[in-house]
Amino acid sequence: MKRTLPALLACASLLVIAGPPAVAVAPSPVVAPAAVASPSRLPALVPGLPRAARETVRPRYTEYVPRSEVAPAGVRTPRCSAATGPYQRLAEDYLGRQVDGRQSTADCRAIRRFQQAHRIAPATGFAGPVTGATVRMMQARKDPNRAGHCPDLAQRTACVDLNRQLMWVQQSGRVLLDPVVIRSGAPTMETRTGSYRIYLRHRRHISNLYGTRMPYAQFFDRGEALHGVYEDLFSGAGSHGCVNLTMTDARRAWEVLSKGDTVYVWGRKPGV
């Protein structure tokens, strides 16, 4: 997709700002079709913690759960979910459970333990988009480039996998930054694929088009950049083309990469 000159150095996240409660759109796993829930078919999910609880619990990620399962303010231990989440099969497979796509008491307990270990709240055992993305990230840790999509180069390479919505950094067959979850471009503003070089780095960049902050920005193609976001990485439909990272992951990528390093992007974000 072509963009006009004013859009250069202006990439930012695209949030849903009007209309009914949005379906949480999160990276979808590359698994058998029966295990994939299309974003248009997900249940109506909402952030699973009330504002007061978020301020005190401070989870790494807030899972999106059915509205009926949002814990009331002051409830510290939510009940175990009886609902089957959109990433139930993915979680079952990773956790060594019977892969039948149906929630059971034992499944719920196993998923809850996983959520607690990875600071996903509320830890109800509902396999929502945040749990699915975390499972996918952990699956990739052992050998993220197993399929060989990212070129094995002598220089540092940021590998951006749009299919799995993951990014890692490698060099000469060695992983320098383990896979992390990303948010790529929204529909009609997809992150462009190809091989690029980082041509500009700005730790405290502000978009000249949208006026939004782009911390730890590392530009690689006509305004598209790797950068951190302050909001929930799983909110909204996606970015304006940039590769969004959590603040922690954006800082780590900043410390590993340098100007002139390669950024290799491939695949297609599920649902776009």
Rank of each mutant, 00 (worst) to 15 (best):
V23I: 13
A44I: 07
V30G: 06
V25C: 07
P43H: 00
A32G: 06
A24E: 13
V16D: 09
A26N: 14
L42M: 11
A32L: 00
A34L: 08
S28Q: 15
P29G: 08
V36R: 13
A24Y: 13
A22E: 15
L42R: 10
P29Q: 10
S40K: 02
A34V: 08
V46F: 04
R41E: 09
V46P: 07
P21D: 04
S38P: 03
P27H: 12
V23T: 07
P29C: 05
A18T: 09
P20I: 01
P21N: 00
P21T: 01
P33I: 05
A34P: 02
P33E: 02
S28N: 15
L45S: 03
R41S: 12
V23E: 04
A35M: 00
V36W: 12
P21C: 04
P27E: 11
A32F: 00
V16S: 10
S40Q: 04
S40I: 02
P33R: 03
V46E: 05
S40A: 04
A35Q: 06
V31C: 11
P27S: 12
V31G: 13
R41D: 10
A24D: 02
P33L: 00
V23K: 13
P20T: 01
S38Y: 02
A34G: 15
A37F: 14
S28W: 14
P43E: 01
S40Y: 02
A26R: 10
V30L: 09
S38G: 05
G19Q: 11
P20N: 10
S38Q: 05
L45G: 00
G19T: 07
P43V: 02
P27F: 06
V46Q: 12
L45V: 05
A24V: 14
V36S: 12
R41A: 11
V46T: 08
P33C: 00
V16M: 10
I17K: 15
S38I: 05
P33M: 02
A18N: 12
P29F: 04
A22R: 07
S40L: 01
V23S: 06
V23Y: 02
V31E: 14
V30N: 07
G19K: 10
V36L: 11
L42A: 07
A32C: 00
P27W: 11
V36N: 11
A37T: 15
P20E: 03
A24F: 06
A34Q: 12
A26D: 13
A35G: 11
V46W: 04
V16E: 10
V16Y: 09
P27K: 10
S28M: 14
